[in-house]
Amino acid sequence: MQARLAATDLACRRGDRLLFRGLSFACAPGDAVHIAGANGIGKSSLIRILAGLLRPFSGEVVRAGKIGLTDERLALDENLPLGKALAFWERLDGLRNARPRDDVLQLNALRDVPVRFLSTGQRKRAALARLLNAAPPIWLLDEPLNGLDEQARKTVEKLVAEHRAGGAIAVVASHQPVVLPGAQIIDLAEYAA
């Protein structure tokens, strides 16, 4: 099945504020979208609408393919060592003792460290490791570069590029510049209501 993600005429309302409206785009396999804009403009809400976790105020989203999401919510047990916390999701995603790409994200040395002791950047990398393990064709990344050092940023950009080369889709919401060759750039400020 070919991955596909398309949004038609999306509008998002939070409370009594209309955050954006009239937003449409379509992604074919290999495409990437960079959602840009200042804090509070609705990037995270858009990501959650695309994931199906939030109902749009109007418009619709068409998805073909499984969705993978990383955002500021880590969804790992804070008290468990990182290895065990990730192992739950690995089992759920049907992997057994598989940690194929962890080294790319340099997490092997942290497997015995309880999740609550991890730094911001390490937590981001842990969330990405889970995404790599699950290997969904559509990636939704909410501020993936927050708290990452220069080397880790390059790794993330490389992983996204590899992911797209494999015929998958990446949507990246980031207020910072991200290297996404050939990506559509959606500046949410243009759609603000």
């Binding site: 499984k66 969705i67 999401l69 955002d71 919510r73 969804a75 759920l92 889970r130 699950a134 969904p136």
Partner: peptide, 15 residues
């Protein structure tokens, strides 16, 4: 705790 941590979001995305 799990609601806050987004566990149910990730479960939902896994069907």
């Amino acid at each position: 705790d799990d609601l806050e941590a987004g566990v149910f979001d990730q479960l939902y995305l896994r069907g």
